[in-house]
Design a protein around this nucleic acid. Structure first.
Lengths: 337, 337
DNA sequence: TTGTACGCGTTATCAA
DNA sequence: TTGATAACGCGTACAA
């Protein structure tokens, strides 16, 4: 467990000053090839690696970016994370993961991370910060990009949730469904941009356009998970008239719907159509219709935008809207009339 | 974008020396309450937060631990990661994620991370380092814990893969299967400990114990993913005699088997039993029999062991073996005779 | 082209 | 109990 060698050791061994070693390390032009060689030799001999911490002291750069993620809630987040890692590893930067499980933890990170300055930039997934926090990020000069969330003060990357939900519900209506249940995700955070809210709007729009009556008891909400989705579905399926189709705000909730249907011996898709939202891998396995989000792409674009922002912190916030794709599979193959 | 205030600013405002401020921050006993108050007031007024980078310079501690993970390969890794995050967030430490996609990247991290000293400890998932690297970790004093991998020089947390595979195959034999196919994972890394190898041993043992003939053409291997699993299954199912059951080294591969069976119009479980390994969430959704690994627990125990090791780096390496649980579901409900 | 000295923001030592 | 000062390892003016 020998102590690591420092730039001083290298300088001594090479018979030069530390300044020269530093110049070699940062390949500064003005250093004679012969000297450079000597230094390189010493570096190799000592297995010297510059200490990144000491470097950070001066440069104010850490070489890592942070991601605040509600890690456990949905596979959706994992997929986005994969996109992030993917894009990030190519840049040689490392990723620090901040997992939030509740509002308290979220706000903790929102207020602490900018002060930590242990990251050069920040990605926030599905967690819209309030304006206070958003302005805080901006004020301390921490480049931040929001994914699947929106705040006017920060560059935000979202999908068109209204349109996505609209497509899903319209596809059901086109198949002749009149009574369509909707299981929304639980609305949390601020309301300027909210996935759940937008999906509800899309639901309304599709109904309205088709001249269908909006039936309040056909709409409910649940947490973003299977069990809650199942419970919500049981609730909807107990209504009169019973919905012939259910649109869930996420695939995991939709899977809960499938479970509910099975437990009630309601055949899918014969008696009940089901469509989810996200397009996570399981949806394909279960042959579940869904609204596909470009998850990987969101992660990758988020990194790209963040790096852009880190290179030029003056850039004004941007709102980027990606589009979704309707994927019709087995669970919506029944026609009504 | 005002510069952050430092300990000096606080000292000046409070009318004390920086030493005193430092003592207050680290709640050193010998500081008079009155002085402490003054300092606290100044800290609050300036919104001062100690700079963790500067702290690290002295303390040689970064407050973060690293995890080297083959991130994209299997849901298994995600689950372990969840366990890690879970345990870690309680300790106030942060997690740096190193994603490896190939051997080169793996070796890169193995050799770079110890020198970086940007992490206080390291978790390595499913990637057995060679002895050279393992001894390297030990030599530079980087506490390291291996999860789902083994090296004699490092604390390792594994499941009993031999026993797990044995249980799976035995359960098939008990149901009367005589021709059991085995799709192993691709063997990579060193061979001292290897999940794939151990599972093959378990397969052999169950066969041998039952006095069944080992049929080489019933064994194949594939990458740890669905598509490869499907291809491997197609291969096995083309053999004569056709296997009446297939054991796959992972759930994702087993799912590939299900797809292969479907495409060949082979009914599961009537004509073909299928059992996987891991016990990822999807296995439950698909009603797939499997050998359940305690994934979350592996992550949590890994963190616990690592923290133990960081507190006392002298601790000798330990080999901890967790056990698996056979979970029999729909895909293995056919009896043969 | 090269070496020296200073600064980065802390902690730790040591007088006072 | 306190304040000054020396590390920590590196980047960088500035002087040589």
């Amino acid at each position: 467990m020998r102590a690591h060698s420092t730039i001083h050791d290298v300088a001594r061994l090479a018979g030069v000053g530390i300044g020269t070693v530093s110049r070699v390390l940062n390949d500064h032009p003005s250093v004679r090839p012969a000297t450079r060689e000597k230094v390189f030799a010493a570096i190799a001999q000592l297995h010297f690696k510059p200490n990144p911490i000491a470097r950070s002291m001066i440069s104010k750069q850490t070489g890592s970016i942070g991601a605040i993620v509600p890690f456990f809630t949905r596979p959706f987040h994992i997929e986005v994370l994969c996109g992030i890692q993917n894009a990030l590893s190519r840049t040689g930067r490392e990723l620090i993961l901040y997992n939030v499980e509740n509002d308290m933890q979220r706000d903790h990170y929102f207020s602490e991370i900018p002060m930590h300055r242990k990251v050069d930039g920040l990605l926030v997934i599905s967690l819209p910060p309030g304006d206070t926090f958003a302005q805080g990020f901006y004020a301390v000069g921490l480049p931040t990009v929001l994914l699947d969330a929106y705040n006017p003060y920060l560059t935000s990357l979202v999908v068109d949730n209204v349109e996505g939900a609209y497509q899903a519900v319209k596809s059901l209506i086109d198949k002749g469904h009149q009574h369509i249940g909707f299981i929304n995700g639980i609305i949390e955070g601020n309301f300027r941009f909210n996935q759940a809210n937008d999906r509800l709007i899309g639901f309304h729009r599709a109904l309205g356009e088709a001249g269908l009556l909006f039936e309040p008891m056909m709409v409910t909400e649940s947490a973003w998970n299977r069990r809650a989705g199942c419970a919500a579905a049981l609730h909807l399926l107990a209504q009169q008239p019973r919905p012939t189709a259910i649109f869930a705000a996420s695939d995991v909730q939709a899977i809960g719907v499938l479970e509910a249907a099975r437990s009630l011996h309601i055949a899918v898709p014969e008696e009940l159509s089901v469509i989810g939202f996200d397009g996570i891998e399981v949806s394909e396995l279960l042959d579940l219709s869904t609204v596909q989000q470009p998850m990987q792409q969101m992660g990758e674009m988020g990194v790209a935008k963040l790096i852009e922002l880190m290179a030029n912190p003056q850039l004004p916030p941007e709102l980027i809207c990606l589009s979704t794709t309707l994927v019709e599979r087995y669970t919506t193959t029944n026609e009504r009339d």
